[in-house]
């Protein structure tokens, strides 16, 4: 199905968040939001996505 990953369209083969994150190769420290709602790490295993969902995967950067 097609979802929006960090602002760009992507084809993913799974519907489970935990599998999608693996499939897309995200690594290190990151936090996730779906359609602008924070998804705690403890929810990754049971969280599912549907086509058109907007997935944001954020990581630490410098800031002022």
């Amino acid at each position: 199905m097609e979802v929006l990953v960090n602002g760009e369209t992507a084809q993913v083969s799974s519907t489970q968040l935990v599998d999608i994150l693996k499939e897309l190769g995200f690594e290190g420290d990151f936090a996730v939001a779906i359609d602008g709602e924070f998804i705690p790490r403890s929810m990754y295993a049971e969280q599912t996505l549907t086509a058109g969902n907007q997935l944001d995967v954020l990581s630490p950067i410098a800031g002022g």
Binding site: V5, N6, E8, A10, F26, F30, A31, S59, P60, I61
Partner: peptide
């Protein structure tokens, strides 16, 4: 120290910025 969060660019999906 202040810091922030931004979209990770190391995903190998659509971003292609690994």
């Amino acid at each position: 120290i202040t810091l922030s969060l931004r979209r990770q660019m190391s995903g190998n999906g659509s971003t292609g910025l690994q």
